[in-house]
């Protein structure tokens, strides 16, 4: 692989830039490089954070300084290691995306802004639900909050401006639309998106080995469920 650029992320990290625009092709390279580093960590590597077009590699400069054979500064050592990796890396390998279905109860008290989204776009409630739940979405990255997915692929017909003043608290599991993006609130947090429904799934479980339900590279689709189904699924978690 040839198309990449490095820049320092402070004195304990490096940003590897793999593209200039948010497109699926760049995203696939980001996921592939993330997976490769995960499987082939170098001594002193702390962690990897995939972004839209970048991969951040955090390292411990103390360990790198101790490891260095050629009197290289830690930053240069890391660049040398990553350069070597890129020489070995070919873009032919394409990771098979995981498909994750997210059940959502749309409208009512769980989706108080469904009507606003419908009115803004001259659609009926049913049309909003049909459009939102028929598309396939791509998880570009997890950020903003623990387990919060940045999703790509929402139909432009649903684009709705954010609320003029954000709500102080949005329940976790809320599915929202902000501008031309859609997403799922993974923890209870303040937020300005229009809330159209809620999922009974937990997107963030701090005590699981995979604390985030979704990861970069996943494909996501939404399945409409009834309020009874929602209550049943939520209840199941409380009384297993």
């Amino acid at each position: 692989m040839k198309n990449y650029e490095f820049s320092p992320l402070g004195d304990s990290g490096v940003i590897v830039k793999l593209g200039d625009v948010i497109v699926q092709r760049t995203h696939e390279i980001v996921v592939m490089f993330t997976d490769y580093l995960q499987e082939n960590p170098f001594p002193g590597m702390m962690e990897i954070v995939p972004g839209f077009t970048t991969v951040a590699v955090y390292y411990d400069p103390i360990i790198l300084a101790q490891q260095s054979l050629h009197e290289l500064m830690p930053y240069e050592s890391v660049l040398a290691i990553l350069d070597q990796m890129f020489q070995e890396l070919t873009v032919t390998r394409k990771a098979q995306p995981r498909l994750v279905e997210i059940p959502v109860c749309y409208g009512g008290s769980l989706g108080p802004d469904l009507d606003i989204v419908a009115q803004q776009n001259s659609l009926t409630r049913e049309e909003v639900i049909a459009i939102h739940s028929s598309a396939g979405y791509l998880v570009y990255m997890i950020g903003f909050a623990p387990g919060f997915p940045y999703l790509g692929g929402m139909d432009e017909r649903l684009a709705t401006p954010r609320r003029s003043s954000p709500r102080l608290s949005i329940p976790k599991g809320s599915v929202g639309i902000g501008g031309s993006q859609t997403g799922i609130y993974s923890i209870e947090t303040p937020g300005g998106w229009q809330i159209i429904g809620r999922t009974p799934l937990s997107l963030f479980q701090p005590n699981e080995s995979q604390p985030s339900l979704l990861r970069a590279g996943d494909k996501v689709c939404f399945r409409p469920i009834s309020e009874q189904e929602y209550e049943y699924e939520v209840g199941k978690k409380v009384f297993p």
């Binding site: 992320l9 402070g10 940003i15 972004g51 951040a56 950020g143 909050a145």
Partner: peptide, 29 residues
């Protein structure tokens, strides 16, 4: 700019022009 990783000590400048130093509980991106 396209959002990317930020770290402890990152000095970012929102449009109003007053800098923010990100600390321990910073967001990841």
């Amino acid at each position: 700019l396209i959002s990317a990783a930020v770290t402890m000590g990152t000095i970012q400048v929102p449009p109003a022009g007053q800098p923010i130093i990100l600390m321990a509980d910073r967001q990841t991106i």
